[in-house]
Design a protein around this nucleic acid. Structure first.
Lengths: 207, 207
DNA sequence: GCCAAAATTAAACAATCGTTTAAATATGGC
DNA sequence: GCCATATTTAAACGATTGTTTAATTTTGGC
């Protein structure tokens, strides 16, 4: 099979699985969406579940390397946190569909091996973020906080905003005209998280 | 139908929908789980979707009243925020299954009327929390922050922790022995959020 | 232009889906 | 104990599920 056709099917799969879930997306709908015959899904990928797996594996693990790169750089923890937050926000906003699939899958007990794979990815990313915070302790620029839950707060905030366009636009209250992918939302989330982390990690003024 | 039997079916439905999703839970599985004949689901509730609706409506809207009660009390905003956070944590930790169903449904384009209903509930709760923060502005005890995203941060943190037992226990790293519902997790999340909000909302010391 | 391999097709497969039917049983007022 | 109503049952309904089959078309090296 041509590589571009395979990629096209995976693109369509990500789109449809994102909107309707795994069980809610039939093989016939996938085939029609990709403009191929129903039998081609089994022919190319083996099964619906293996197509799902291929779709997950295509996206997974890319974030980790970027985080490691940020963390490896020789610079002050404040800048690192800021860069990591920006990277997270950009990454998730650029892959909202896949983001929703990941967290939906994590909350289900349906395909445990995929849940575990996703869990591994998220866990490794979290650890990388934690090590940034811990470096801040050592360099005595951050106060002691609950590092793990601080990372959860960052990721959780972004995940919540990108969970639902409908809800996000109502809560952020910038009119229904703007889509969730609008740049203003992205900037606003970044600003909020920078502000939040600055206040949260700053050492108290010695009185 | 006896009220207790109806409640029992709804309990089982919440459990199964929570673990396997709407499309992943067959009517026959629901019936077997509740110990009734398959036909009884249609007989009692009309359809699988109406059973789902009944299950959602049973839980929805209860949180809002409690929040309004907290907000109505005459006391300082710091105490209100603390109480609201505690209430949110307790509420969500006590209904993890339903929590997962809500956010899963919000991220899907499958049953739009249910998504809208859930969106309404979450939005109203958010507004109530925002008004607590805004009262803090007026009383000049909170600094100006992005109130809406601050609420998203609180809810997002709790949602992320309760999303997956597997992931939560790995990130929080307290051994696989402890379940996600363990009291220590709940306390730790409360402490983190109290600490976070204190740092985030505190007015900077005038230097 | 030929031929084996790969790709694509429509049709059929058994299994399961949500729901309905019609018969059997249980219930409660009289 | 009788009868109308409500409940419960097993069986069947047509539709859709994911996958396979077998026939057909397309492809690329020689």
């Amino acid at each position: 099979m041509s590589e571009e056709k395979r990629e096209h099917i995976l693109d369509v799969a990500e789109e449809l699985f994102g909107h309707h879930g795994f069980e809610g997306t039939s093989v016939r709908l996938l085939a029609k969406g990709a403009g191929v015959n129903v039998a081609m899904i089994s022919y190319y990928f083996g099964s619906k579940e293996k197509l799902f797996q291929a779709m997950v594996e295509r996206r997974a693990g890319v974030t980790l390397m970027a985080l490691k790169f940020i963390n490896a750089k020789e610079q002050d923890p404040w800048k690192k946190i800021e860069m990591a937050v920006d990277h997270y926000v950009d990454k998730i906003f650029s892959n909202i569909g896949f983001q929703r699939i990941m967290y939906r899958e994590l909350s289900l007990d349906q395909r445990s091996w995929i849940s575990e794979a996703i869990s591994n990815i998220v866990f490794q990313n979290t650890q990388e973020m934690v090590s940034i915070i811990e470096e801040g302790y050592k360099k005595k620029v951050f106060r002691k906080v609950d590092a793990e839950l601080t990372v959860v707060t960052i990721v959780g905030t972004i995940a919540k905003v990108t969970l639902s366009s409908l809800l996000c636009c109502r809560i952020l209250g910038e009119g229904a005209t703007k889509d969730i992918t609008d740049d203003s939302h992205r900037k606003r989330v970044k600003k909020h998280l920078h502000d939040l982390m600055k206040a949260h990690l700053r050492k108290p003024d010695k009185a």
